[in-house]
Design a protein around this nucleic acid. Structure first.
Lengths: 239, 239
DNA sequence: TCAATCTGATTGATCCGATAAATCGGAATA
DNA sequence: TATTCCGATTTATCGGATCAATCAGATTGA
């Protein structure tokens, strides 16, 4: 029924054969014979499935199904948007801020003690990186910090979108921006957020989340809050 | 720079050649020669671009670029999820509710008099459909009502996700459910929402939006609010 | 002279077969 | 028994043939 919405024999085949993670599929020749299209046409549709992260393949090993993941489709479309539209990152960043704020209450009540411990560990590692003689940008910690908070939602669409945000963040090279004072302040907020979560104070945590997104670096750029393009152009920052 | 994130010669070609809507591309043979891969391999990547809604093609007319659209990628991935995971619709519905609520304030202040007129027209058409001797389900009006409110955001990602929600709504056939009393109540709320918008009362409009999503039909199903699976199973409703 | 029809060219769509590359499991060997 | 080799499997890529859709210009008839 839903498969009828999908105009590709191979994708319908995947759904009809209950494509569970790890399942090995027949060879391309066999699938071609079963669904009634040539191997060439099948490979075109196979490439779509692979690009969407539904399957993986290598010579001799064959084709295997992967676990469903919203991210590949979102990430590819978003990368295209970032190339074609100058304010695509700002738009997606706006979406991300609203998602984190909107799902905050649902997400933080699901956090386990392990998660809180993980968040504390990330804060410690980030602060250590900012204390070394040779400063390292705690970008992986930043990414993991935010994704860990929302992970327990178990909502593949929300998680996929948030992960795509960080991939875009890297693509526009915000992760390489080394403003020491800004980063110190960001991680000070992160530390306070975790303390609020430990105290069960989700409202304060949310308020700190919102405040910390408004932080600006010394160039006047809010890394996690999209400012209007006109402000950005005046300051000569390219995004 | 961003194109380097994209592992397909044809997609990189599209981005490098400033693929603006309406632009006609060279033939497959010519692109194949330019990017240095065979026509067969090019067609595989072309199928991905087509599936993402980046280009369209027909024999003799050639290949043309389309305007960027987040929807095709989201819709396809979502359709796959709906087939593979039983609570995918519920997860996506949760995302949609939060998006509408989160972006409400930004969206309604952008509405033009034409938009308010359009919303009134949609309410009138829906109520007419519910008044005929032979009731017609005002599904297209319902979809357009919600999409019109958020259209002026100009955020392609938010709009794409909201459109995908309605495509999923159709795919799970919620649009065919004809509970007269429920629909009457839904459209009563819609009418009140437009009246609140006309009065400039965005807070009341938002409250009505949230309330109307909690409406349940006579089977106990909230069409726009995902209830936990256990409640659904008890009531024998399949989704 | 203009409208209708036809046709060759263009170009995507689909198919088929050949070859290269990656990988694995079983046979052979030390 | 461990290591190496090799044939088989199967994906990856290429090139060519044919079909189908569409268009612009030529031809024909009124």
């Amino acid at each position: 029924m839903i498969a009828s919405q999908i105009d590709a024999e191979f994708l319908r085949y995947l759904l009809a054969h209950d494509c569970q993670p790890g399942t090995r599929l027949p060879s391309l020749d066999e699938i071609s014979a079963e669904v009634g299209i040539s191997v060439g046409k099948l490979r075109e549709q196979f490439e779509v499935a692979r690009t969407l992260g539904l399957v993986e393949a290598s010579p001799r090993k064959g084709i295997r199904c992967l676990a469903y993941d919203f991210l590949p489709a979102v990430r590819l479309s978003l990368m295209v948007a970032l190339s074609l539209q100058r304010d695509a990152f700002r738009s997606f960043a706006s979406l991300r801020i609203h998602l984190e704020t909107a799902f905050w209450d649902e997400a933080v009540v699901l956090l386990l003690p392990d998660d809180i411990a993980r968040l504390n560990e990330l804060v410690a590692r980030a602060q250590a990186k900012l204390t070394y003689d040779r400063i390292q940008i705690p970008y992986p910690e930043h990414r993991q910090f935010h994704l860990t908070i929302f992970n327990r939602l178990g909502n593949p669409f929300v998680l996929g979108l948030l992960e795509a945000y960080w991939d875009a963040y890297e693509a526009v090279e915000l992760n390489t921006y080394a403003d020491y004072a800004y980063l110190q302040e960001v991680w000070s907020y992160h530390e306070r957020i975790v303390k609020a979560l430990e105290a069960g104070d989700t409202a304060t945590g949310k308020e700190l989340l919102i405040q910390h997104m408004r932080l600006i670096d010394k160039m006047g750029v809010a890394h996690e809050l999209p400012v209007p393009m006109s402000v950005k152009q005046t300051q000569g920052v390219e995004l």
